[in-house]
């Protein structure tokens, strides 16, 4: 399923957040959006996923304007996990994941279909949360809770999954756990993943492509080894850094100082 952003222009109030942004997201790949704070990463994600309806320019899903899809039909193709979410105090993991089937139900057809139950089971297995299904979401650790939310998004059976900083506030073990799950979802089911990332090494390691947002527009797009250069780090983050090729061929960068 192709996703293309053309001439995107987003304002919040009087402030221009993004202007003239063009991105083509690669189908079936993991793409990370990186850039400094306030550059417009989350704004790009919200526009590209169709959550923000008040945009100028175009977002094309399979060549069709994303806002010409109805909300429920869009929710069957695209799942979005924003950065902040409210967890009701008394909901179990299984119930939360089951909310992912919302777009497939209507008030005429409320009962669970076999398909609904299978999707929920599959989502909980893919995120390795099935043993915690009866637990209250509010009682889970940060990493487990994030996996539960991802499971909810997966239960939508989307073709594209958007994640806004999925590893924020998690310790390093839980960060890697979440990223491994994201990678395996992409690998095994070919789901397109588009996420905002803060940690450049992790972004490089887990993504096929990087999209760099800087100063309200797209600075660069390409594979991690092409994007993560000394010049890029100096230009975009004002950081002097050493860049290595790791033993597995991946890019590792080591920040040294701020220019």
């Amino acid at each position: 399923m192709s996703l293309e952003v053309k001439g995107l222009y987003v304002t919040i109030g009087d402030k221009i957040i993004l202007e003239n942004a063009d991105v083509t997201f690669s189908d079936g790949k993991i793409t990370s959006v990186i850039g400094p704070n306030g550059a417009g990463k989350s704004t790009l994600l919200r526009a590209a996923s169709g959550i923000n309806e008040k945009i100028k320019g175009q977002v094309l899903l399979d060549g069709r304007d994303i806002h010409s899809y109805s909300r429920p039909s869009l929710a069957k193709k695209i799942a979005v996990l924003p950065q902040s979410s409210v967890t009701p105090s008394d909901i179990t993991v299984e119930q939360l994941v089951d909310y992912g089937r919302f777009p497939y139900r209507s008030w005429l057809k409320k009962s669970d279909s076999k398909e609904d139950r299978e999707a929920v089971e599959w989502a909980m297995e893919a995120t390795r949360i099935n043993l915690l299904r009866k637990r209250q979401v509010s009682s889970l650790s940060g990493g487990e809770r994030q996996r539960a939310w991802i499971a909810m998004a997966l239960a939508q059976k989307p073709e594209i999954l958007f994640l806004d900083e999925p590893t924020t506030y998690l310790d390093i073990a839980h960060q890697l756990e979440v990223l491994e799950i994201i990678r395996s979802i992409n690998k095994e089911w070919g789901m397109t993943i588009i996420m905002v990332m803060h940690d450049l090494n992790q972004a490089a390691r887990y993504s096929h492509e990087l999209v760099v947002v800087k100063d309200k527009s797209i600075y660069q797009q390409g594979s991690p080894d092409k994007v993560l250069t000394k010049k890029f780090l100096a230009d975009v983050f004002r950081v002097r850094a050493e860049v290595f090729t790791g033993p597995d061929g991946g890019i590792i960068f080591n920040p040294v100082s701020v220019y």
């Binding site: 919200r46 039909s73 929710a75 924003p82 902040s84 777009p103």
Partner: peptide, 9 residues
């Protein structure tokens, strides 16, 4: 939350 709700259709 509004964003999650929109994402769920």
């Amino acid at each position: 939350g509004d964003d999650i709700a929109k994402g769920l259709g």
